[in-house]
Structure formats: C-alpha cells, structure tokens
Write a protein that binds this DNA or RNA. Structure first.
Length: 305
DNA sequence: ACCCAGGCGGGCG
DNA sequence: CGCCCGCATGGG
C-alpha cells in the first residue's frame, strides 16, 4: 500500500500577470490545458506531473497559487512555463511603438508569452494549420487522450494523460490519427513524430540562432514558415520570431500598410526593424487583439490615444 | 447552404 | 525562385 501523497501549495508574487489572457491567446496550453474562468485556475500536465495554478489579486500585483504533489518541481515548472522572469514593464516600453500597440497592451495587460516543450509545441502547431482555435484544442486533446501515457491516482485509476512524446506517436496509424479528427494533418503528424524520434533532436536545437533554428524546424513534415515561427517562439523562447497567420496578416496590412496587400516577407522585415528581439511579444498582442476584434472581418478596431 | 480557420506540400511556369 | 491549388472537418 503506497503512502498517500497529499497536495501542497505555495504562492508566487507576480506583477503584470493575467492568467486568462495568457490562456486564451492560442498558445500551446490553450490547446491542452483546462481553464476555469470562474475560479481563474488552470490545470495542466508537465511530463507525468499534474500542475494546478490559480491567479488572485490584481493584474498589476497579484499572487500565483501553485498546487501539486511536488512543489519543488511545480514552482520551477510554473516559473519557466509562464516566463515569470520577463520584466513586462520593460517589454511594454519596448513595444509601445504606436497607438494600436498601446491599445492592445491596455486591453490585454498581463498577457504573457509561455515557454513550452519543443515537441509539444511542434505537435500543437502542426495541428493548427488551416484550422481554427477551438478545433485545434479538440484534436489536440483527442491525441493526448489516445496516445499520452496514463497518469494514475492513488487508487490506480487513470486521472489524466501526459502529453504524448514523439516516440508515442511514431507508431500511431493514420487511421487512429484520423479518428482524433486530425484530417489531412494525420500524415504530417506521423511523419513529424518519426522524424523527431529517429532523425532530429529538438532538444539539440536549443543553442541555434533564429535563422538556423527555423531552417531546421522547416525540415519537419507539416512545418513551414509560419509554424516554424510558432515553434521558435513558444517552444524555444525565440522572441525574434513573428508568426504571421491570416489574422496577423490582415491586422498588419490594416494597421501598418494602409490596408494594402502585403507579403509575409515584407511584414517580417517591418516587424524586425520595429520590434527586433521583442517581435514575439508584439506579435502576441497584435494577434490576440486582432482575433478578438475581428480586424479585417467585420469590425473596425477602436484605438487608444 | 456557405465561408472560414494561428498553412503546407507539391506541381507547374 | 514564385504562384496556385487541393486539402478534412466542424464552428459560425
């Protein structure tokens, strides 16, 4: 009879932190974590660990309550995952380049970039292609439930699944992946899993610079320029990365190119010149604002002064 | 019914 | 190179 492991908890002081905006801004945790808006709490897995995070207090100054069976691991995990060492005051100073950016920062103040496992990020964003946020989450959770190693509770009952590693998916069949709803991405998922298990060490790319990192990532089946930017940003913390999806393209054209059709290359050049190593932060604020305000679809954004 | 979604691979010019 | 097309599927 194993000793009953009890949960323990501790609080971390945070400033300029908003759990809801962070969760809702279509980063990897959006696709496989569980968020409770009522209690402002988030539950997710990290390896075989189950982590519970609750945010309280204000956005300017608040507390992150961490609850788990292994506090040492979990506090380190939360600190890394939510990039708590980012000084948002200086980030905002660096990306407040115009009234649109100031409006987005004001509206989504405290939204953070997250830093996730490279393979988890790769899988999430292969699933993301030509897809919408709700269905990305649906498919990702199906894949986790189907292929992720079981996490068992005190009664030996399955209470959750770890995120499946590339090795767990390398032997998946197309049929099984289709049953998860992956559609035409099933082939990409299988090929990417095989490649990242047998031919490429994602962990080994951590020391690469922006350009070489993207180039290596684009060697993975189902990973093109945009998905490579997402993996670089959310999986490696490469904040020079500036993913341009359809929402970003429309918003950038509307806000910075007088509404004219503009190629992704030009948009990248513009972002790099304007925000440099902070482009990834700028991107997240532009993306989240654009998607919620439906910029370029059916509404005009209201700008601050 | 119709259009769209955090795009990519492949084929063609 | 760049351009163009098909692609599974469910939400709005």
């Amino acid at each position: 009879m194993p000793m009953h492991e009890t949960l323990s908890a501790t609080g971390i002081g945070v400033s300029l932190f908003d759990l809801r905006h962070t969760f809702e801004s279509a980063q990897p945790l959006t696709f496989y974590a569980e968020y409770n808006a009522q209690s402002n709490t988030l539950t997710y897995t990290s390896g075989a660990h189950i982590i519970n995070v609750g945010a309280s207090g204000g956005v300017e100054k608040g507390t992150l309550l961490v609850v788990s069976k292994d506090l040492g691991y979990s506090v380190a995990e939360v600190t890394r995952r939510f990039r708590l060492s980012d000084n948002m005051r200086s980030v905002y100073k660096r990306i407040s380049t115009d009234s649109f950016m100031r409006a987005s920062i004001e509206r989504y103040k405290g939204m953070r970039l997250t830093l996730n496992d490279p393979w988890e990020t790769t899988l999430c964003f292969i699933i993301s292609q030509f897809n919408n946020v709700k269905r990305i989450g649906l498919i990702t959770k199906n894949v986790v439930r189907t292929f992720g190693p079981a996490i068992k509770g005190d009664n030996d009952n399955v209470i959750a699944h770890s995120f499946p590693g590339s090795g767990d998916l390398a032997h998946a069949t197309i049929k099984e992946l289709m049953a998860c709803g992956a559609g035409f991405r099933a082939k990409y998922i299988k090929e990417a899993a095989e490649y990242c298990t047998n031919n490429l060490s994602l962990q080994g790319l951590r020391s690469k610079g922006h350009d070489e990192l993207k180039e290596e990532l684009m060697g993975i089946s189902g990973v093109g320029d945009k998905v490579a930017d997402c993996i670089a940003l959310f999986g490696y913390g490469d904040t020079r990365a500036f993913p341009v999806d359809v929402w970003m393209q429309r918003a950038m054209e509307r806000m910075y190119f007088k509404g004219k059709k503009t190629g992704v290359r030009k948009i990248h050049e513009f972002a790099d010149k304007r925000w440099g190593a902070y482009s990834g932060f700028a991107q997240q604020y532009i993306y989240h604002y654009a998607r919620n305000a439906r910029i370029g679809v059916d509404a005009k954004p209201r700008l601050g002064k």
